[in-house]
Structures are given as structure tokens and as C-alpha cells.
């Protein structure tokens, strides 16, 4: 329901403007969408509200975590607090690739054993971790910071595409592997990038899409199966 419609319904429901209750003073957490309505007091409620703002943490989970912390030893809580403070103090984004780092350059950009000729373009730092787990890729990364999504007002200028183009300008890079998510936004971003990089005489490749290892063919959807067919490869000789 849009805000205007909601406001209209609210206005119709109340008998008159004079009988409406005076709105509460907004608290520091008034913008939290999942606030538990003041069940607890003071610090406990504040902690629940703060935890409830975290992604994937609902009001019930926030309450459970808060009471777990209340019951925990002081040194355990202090360790958590120190970790939170430390991560905010020390961690920043790599100036070259945009990955998380504790220095000017991230661990991968600072590693001289890595190949400078291949760059893998990903959406988020967590995608770097996913690819690193494969131990298949020994080149460098470039983190875009998202994917092109016009409905959410994210355009090419909002991503680290200019930084990528400046990295490609010196002629060292021979191949760019686009590893954006295999969804509509990721595919559109890959299309945009391939068009942009295509004029630079650099090989542009895209991660293959297809069947997950360990699955049954009969359960594959037609979109994935279609892509697997398109990306099939010759085996043997």
C-alpha cells in the first residue's frame, strides 16, 4: 500500500482531526521497521532494536540474541564488542579492486604471485571469497559494488566501472572474466561491461551457467538446462 493511500485510509478511519492522538516523540530507533513495541525497558530494548536492524535478523531472533548476550560472561561480550570496534577501525576497501582490506591494498592485490593479465569482475566482496574457495583462479579481482538495477536507481555511474576501465587502460590485462550473479541484473551488467570493454581488444569471458553438481537432470528448470546446452563442451578428442 502506498504512503498516500495509507494516509488517506487513516484519515478516513479517525473521526476527526481533533481526536487523533499526539504522535510520540521519535526515538533514535523510530526508523526501525521491525521494532518490538517497547516490551522491554531501557538498555535491553535498545539492544533488541539495534540487533533487529541487522540483515536477516527478525524481532524474535533479536530478542533471543539479546538475552543470550545478557546471560553470557563479561569477557565473551567484550570480545564481541572489541571485534565490532576493531572491524570498523581497521577494515576499509582496497583502493585498487574495491575488496575489503586492512591496508591500502587488499591481500590479493598485494600478492606478487598473482597474474596481472586476468581480472575477474564480481559484484560484492563476498563473491571474491566464493571464487577463492575454488582455488582455480590466480588472477586479480575487481569488485563493482553491485549490479545495474534501474528500478532501484543503480546505474553504471553508481558502480566502480570507471575504476575498472582505468585499470584496463595500460594494456597489461589480457582477459576480463565477468562473474556477476546469474540473474537479470547480473546479466545486464555483464552485457554492459562486455560492450564497454569490447572496444579495447581485451578478451571478455563470462562464467558458464548450467547444471549444479550432484543434481538430477529431470529437476533442472528449462532456463538453466537451456544454458547448459548452449555452453556444452566437447569431451575426449
Amino acid at each position: 500500500m502506498s504512503g498516500a493511500v495509507a494516509a488517506g485510509r487513516a484519515a478516513a478511519w479517525w473521526p476527526g482531526p481533533w481526536t487523533r492522538p499526539v504522535p510520540r516523540e521519535p526515538s533514535s530507533m523510530s526508523d526501525s521497521p521491525r521494532r518490538l513495541c517497547g516490551v522491554y525497558e531501557g538498555a535491553v530494548q535498545d539492544l533488541i532494536d539495534e540487533l533487529g536492524r541487522l540483515p536477516g535478523v527478525g524481532p524474535k531472533s533479536a530478542q533471543r540474541i539479546a538475552f543470550h548476550l545478557l546471560a553470557a560472561d563479561d569477557h565473551e561480550v567484550k570480545r564481541l564488542v572489541d571485534a565490532l570496534v576493531e572491524v570498523k577501525r581497521r577494515v576499509r576497501f582496497c583502493e585498487l579492486c574495491g575488496n575489503v582490506a586492512e591496508a591500502e591494498l587488499c591481500r590479493i592485490c598485494a600478492d606478487p604471485r598473482r597474474s596481472d593479465e586476468v581480472i575477474c569482475v564480481v559484484e560484492e566482496p563476498k563473491d571474491v571469497v566464493a571464487i577463492e574457495r575454488t582455488r582455480e583462479f590466480r588472477g586479480r579481482y575487481h569488485v563493482l559494488g553491485g549490479a545495474i538495477n534501474p528500478i532501484d536507481n543503480v546505474g553504471p555511474d553508481d558502480l566502480r566501472i570507471k575504476e575498472l576501465m582505468s585499470r584496463l587502460a595500460d594494456g597489461t590485462v589480457q582477459e576480463v572474466i565477468i562473474a556477476t550473479d546469474p540473474n537479470v541484473e547480473g546479466e545486464a551488467t555483464a552485457t554492459y561491461l562486455s560492450r564497454l570493454i569490447g572496444s579495447l581488444e581485451i578478451t571478455v569471458s563470462r562464467l558458464a551457467s548450467g547444471l549444479p553438481v550432484g543434481g538430477d537432470l529431470e529437476y533442472a528448470d528449462e532456463v538453466t538446462l537451456g544454458r547448459a546446452f548452449e555452453g556444452r563442451r566437447i569431451v575426449g578428442n
Binding site: P150, E187, T191, D221
Partner: peptide
């Protein structure tokens, strides 16, 4: 079940993608 798999073809062309996204947003 898929009735029309337009996503792939739309995403292969950036011009189609931006036009299509505007259509979806307008419908929304």
C-alpha cells in the same frame, strides 16, 4: 512453470534491458 522466457533475450541487449525495466516499473 515458464510461459515466456523473455529475461534472457532482454538482458542480452542493454537497450532492451533499460526499456524493459522502465516498462516493469511503470506497471508496478
Amino acid at each position: 512453470e515458464t510461459v515466456g522466457a523473455y529475461a534472457r533475450r532482454v538482458c542480452e541487449d542493454y537497450e532492451l534491458y533499460t526499456a524493459g525495466t522502465a516498462m516493469l516499473e511503470a506497471a508496478d
